[in-house]
Nucleic acid binder design. Structure first.
Length: 204
DNA sequence: CGTTAGATCTGCT
DNA sequence: GCAGATCTAACGA
């Protein structure tokens, strides 16, 4: 059966809802004719001007974050510490988005291993999954979801979603306590995994 | 220019 | 758990 990309209109409504709905979705990229995909296991929501931890806090527009002000369906890729991170832009009016922090490798694991130069921990972190899926800022910042390069499919359904504090924003005052990070409970393909691995990796 | 901050990763202790 | 690597863009002189 041929897979069909899903309707992404849910990204246009609530960012927090969209973040949770993205868990389990399958991201597929086609880079230089090579297909790779993974199921989303970890995301973080960034709520634009109201969120001190977001690049777009206080409505500040820079060359780097300008893509966040585009309507939902665009992809915002930014570089940090020599790594790339990928966001799905949400809503139309606000500069909000969902950071894809980790995926469970599916198609093309051998390609991911080659790109990463290792066979373990292929995509359990924001900088890792972009490298595994072949995403870079030069070529892919501003592209559209369900365009020619990146598509998302229905994928799997998490048994239980866990909300935790976000990671790497220790200097963001009150925003450090917001529970805007969502993971598939029991799935080991998340950053800083410490829990107990579920028998089905947390999928239904 | 030079300095600094940033939603990171890896390896070592 | 912590230090070091590594790179881009913003900002001030």
């Amino acid at each position: 059966m041929e897979k069909k990309p899903i309707d992404i209109s849910f990204l246009g409504r609530s960012t927090l809802d969209a973040a949770q709905q993205l868990l389990g979705k399958e991201i597929e990229t086609v880079i230089d004719g090579e297909v790779t995909s993974g199921f989303i296991t970890e995301v973080e929501a960034y709520l634009g001007s109201n969120d001190r931890a977001a690049h777009t806090f206080d409505g500040k527009v820079t060359k780097k974050n300008a893509m966040m002000f585009e309507p939902y369906g665009h992809i915002y890729v930014y570089t940090i510490h020599g790594h790339n991170c990928m966001n799905f832009v949400t809503t139309t009016e606000q500069a909000e988005g969902v950071l894809i922090r980790a995926v469970e490798p599916s198609i093309g694991q051998n390609i991911m291993a080659e790109r990463r130069g290792r066979s373990k921990n292929l995509s359990d972190g924001p900088g890792k999954l972009t490298e595994a899926l072949g995403i870079n800022r030069n070529d892919h910042n501003g592209m559209h979801i369900n365009g020619t390069i990146l598509k998302i499919y229905g994928g799997k359904t998490p048994k239980k979603i866990e909300a935790t504090k976000r990671i790497g924003i220790d200097n963001k005052e009150e925003a450090v306590d917001y529970l805007y990070r969502f993971i598939v409970k029991g799935n080991p393909h998340v950053s800083r995994f410490k829990g107990i691995k579920d028998i089905d990796n947390g999928w239904k």
